[in-house]
Simulated assay, not measured.
Amino acid sequence: MVLEEKPAPMKIRANVAFDSQRGLYDLTFKALGTDCRIQYTATSNDQAARFAKEAVKWVADFETKYSRFRSDSLISVINRNAGGAWTEIDAEVESIFAICDDLHFMTQGVLDPTMLPLIRLWDYRDNHDILPDEKSVSETRGLIGWSKVERKLGAVRLPLKGMALDLGGFGKEYAVDKVAAVAVGNGIDDCLVDFGRDIHALGQPPRYPAWHVALENPENPGSVWGSLAAKDIGVATSGDYRRFFEHSGQRFGHILDPRSGRPVYNGILSVTVTANSCLEAGVLSTAVCVLGEEEGLKLVEGTFGAEGCIVMNSGIQQTSKFHERMVEN
C-alpha cells in the first residue's frame, strides 16, 4: 500500500477590504482555477480578519490535497497508482467518496469522478485538427466507471492502468459550502461565497432583503439577462458557452456525457439551479446539461428544495417555482 504523504500547502495571495458604503467586507483571491470572492458582515475587524484567514487556509488545504493539477496531491498519487498499488486515505477522503456515491446515484450516473481520461481526450484547451475516432472514444470509455473503483477502509485503488479521478465535477461547489460553514463557525450570519459563479448565500446584505445574483446571457457573455434574490440557498450555473473548441464549424463544449464518451450537444446553452446547497445546485445544473431538457427538468423538480432554468437556442424553460426567485428589474 502506498502511504498518503502530506504535500506542502499551496500559498494563496488574498486581499480583504471594507466597503463602508455597503457595510461589507470583501475578500478576494484566486484558487481552484477561478476568481474567488467572499462578501460578508462582521462585528469587528478582528472577527473579519479571523474568518478571512480561516477561509483562505481551508481553500488552500483543500486544493493542495485534491487538485489533479498538482503532481503531489493525493488525487495525483491515486491516479499514478492506477492498475497497481492501493493508496492510503483518511476519514475525510472516505467521506468525500461517500458523497461521490450519492451524487453518482442522484444524477443517474452522469456525474462520474472517473471521467478524467475522457476530459483529457476532449480537452477544449488543445488543438483538435482531428477529432477523436470511435476506437479511441470506445477505449477511453472502458476506463470510466465509478463502480469500478475499489475501496476498503482506509484505502482506495483504481484497478485499470489509465483510470484517473477528477473531483472537478463538484469540488468547487463543495468548497463553497464548506467556506460558508467556516463563516457560520466564526459567528458570521450574512455572507455571499462566490467561487467562479458557484455561490452559497447566507442571510442578507445590509439594507437589502437578499443577495442579488446576476444571470449571465450565454448568447452574449458579459451581459446579464436577469438576476436572482438569494438568501440561505446555493446557486450554480453550468454551460459550454465559455469553455469549448470548434472543429469544421461545430462547437464542442467541455461538458461530457459518460454514456456516449463525447461532448454534450443538445441545444442547451446554460442551466442555472438553486438548491439547499451549492454542491447540490452545481451537480444538478451539470446533470441537466447532460440529460437534456425533459429529463433534466424532471431531475430538478424531483429534488427537494431545488428549482432550475434552462437557456436554450429555442428559448427558456424553467421549473414551476423558479420565477419566484427572480428579481424584477
Rank of each mutant, 00 (worst) to 15 (best):
D189Y: 04
N127M: 09
C191P: 10
D123F: 09
T87Y: 06
E295G: 00
Y174P: 03
G253L: 03
G292Q: 08
P7G: 14
V224N: 05
G185M: 04
G226P: 00
T34S: 09
D126F: 11
A236V: 03
A85W: 06
R50W: 02
M163S: 07
A275G: 01
Q204A: 15
R325L: 14
A85L: 10
N217V: 03
E54Q: 15
G145D: 12
S277P: 01
V2C: 05
K135N: 11
A214P: 02
T303R: 08
T237G: 07
V184P: 09
Q39W: 10
V59C: 02
L153C: 05
F18G: 09
S285P: 01
L165N: 02
Y66L: 13
P206H: 00
V290E: 03
E280W: 00
D35P: 10
S277V: 00
S138I: 04
S285M: 03
R70E: 04
K321L: 14
I144E: 07
R50E: 13
A175G: 01
P132V: 06
E54W: 02
T286V: 11
V110K: 07
R151E: 08
Y241E: 03
D194L: 02
C36W: 02
A155N: 02
A91V: 12
L160D: 10
P132R: 06
